[in-house]
Design a protein around this nucleic acid. Structure first.
Length: 289
DNA sequence: CACTTGACCTGTCCGC
DNA sequence: TGCGGACAGGTCAAGT
């Protein structure tokens, strides 16, 4: 899924919807989706109040008044959808939507609040997870210790960006930008979009990318992610925001999933190839080896 | 050590 | 219409 802009969109939505709510119950289908539910839920989740909703890289954290947090990774197909008690409509109602259908067969975890509203964690492919972790211990998680800086932070500079790449240069620039320990939150969509923006072929070895190209890549990455947040993220397939609604960034994508269509910059037909084990979209005229 | 590949799952799409 | 295979927004462990 969900890359930085999508997770950030969910975070913003949930911040408006669940802060201050009190959890009254939790249900999950199998242990895989919520590994430590059986040991910690009764003590640290039930009767807890939501105090904040945070994001780091592609990980969401719902902080609780018990000093524990629900730590959530949506992986490829995860959704976090909030349904207000009064938001459901009868079958056939003009405003009928996903929220009426929940829970559905992809629902893995359901959290109910005191006012009757519910938060559903759905995940078709079951790669995602929810964990209940002491808030103070989150920074000690292996992923959190190795993850790189947030690319949209105001104090993150082009020089810092470039310096993250320079140590290990014998892999493709696409593999490097997807590496969460280099920069946080970049996934397949925004890797392709930003590399196109900077006119860099994704297979180029990182060591061959010039300072000027890194500077352009930095600017393009931030622009494309900020634009996507503005558009509510990319709904390539499953992604929806906290209210079950799709994002519209795909309407603005320049190369991602646009193979066979003209490059918006030069008109050359966009091609799809495989780089770093991932489907990769390029303009073969703008992005050369 | 740096880097790549396979595995985790379900659903959809495409060619035969 | 059915079936097999490839593929899908991410991350790890295991392999080279």
């Amino acid at each position: 899924m969900p890359e930085l802009p999508e997770v950030e969109t969910v975070r913003r939505g949930l911040s408006e919807l669940i802060i201050g709510k009190i959890v009254v119950s939790e249900a999950h289908d199998t242990a895989k989706g919520f590994p430590n539910a059986s040991t910690d839920v009764a003590q640290f989740l039930i009767d807890a109040g939501v105090t904040a909703v945070r994001r780091r890289a592609k990980v969401l954290m719902i902080d609780l008044s018990t000093d524990y947090s629900l730590v959530i990774h949506l992986k490829m197909t995860g959704q976090l959808v909030y349904v207000d008690k009064d938001a459901r409509f009868g079958a056939g109602h003009p405003n009928d939507s996903l929220v009426n259908a929940l829970p559905d067969k992809s629902t893995r975890v359901t959290i109910e609040f005191k006012d009757g509203s519910q938060l559903f964690f759905n995940d078709q492919r079951k790669f995602g997870w929810v964990k209940l972790i002491a808030t103070a211990e989150i920074p000690e998680l292996p992923f959190m210790k190795k993850v790189g800086p947030e690319p949209l932070e105001a104090d993150f500079t082009a020089k810092q960006f470039k310096d993250r790449f320079t140590r290990r240069g014998r892999r493709s620039i696409k593999a490097a930008i997807l590496d969460q320990s280099v920069v946080a939150g970049v996934g397949n969509i925004y890797a392709d979009e930003s590399l196109w923006g900077a006119k860099i072929h994704p297979s180029r070895l990182t060591a061959t990318v010039t300072d000027a190209e890194f500077k352009k890549l930095y600017t393009e990455l931030r622009e494309v992610m900020n634009l996507s947040i503005e558009k509510g993220g990319s709904s390539n397939r499953n992604y929806v925001n906290a209210e079950g609604k799709r994002g519209s960034y795909m309407d603005f994508a320049r190369v991602f999933r646009r193979e066979g269509l003209p490059c918006p910059r030069c008109g050359t037909t966009i091609e799809k190839l495989r780089v770093a084990g991932r489907g990769t979209h390029i303009c073969p005229y703008c992005q050369t080896l």
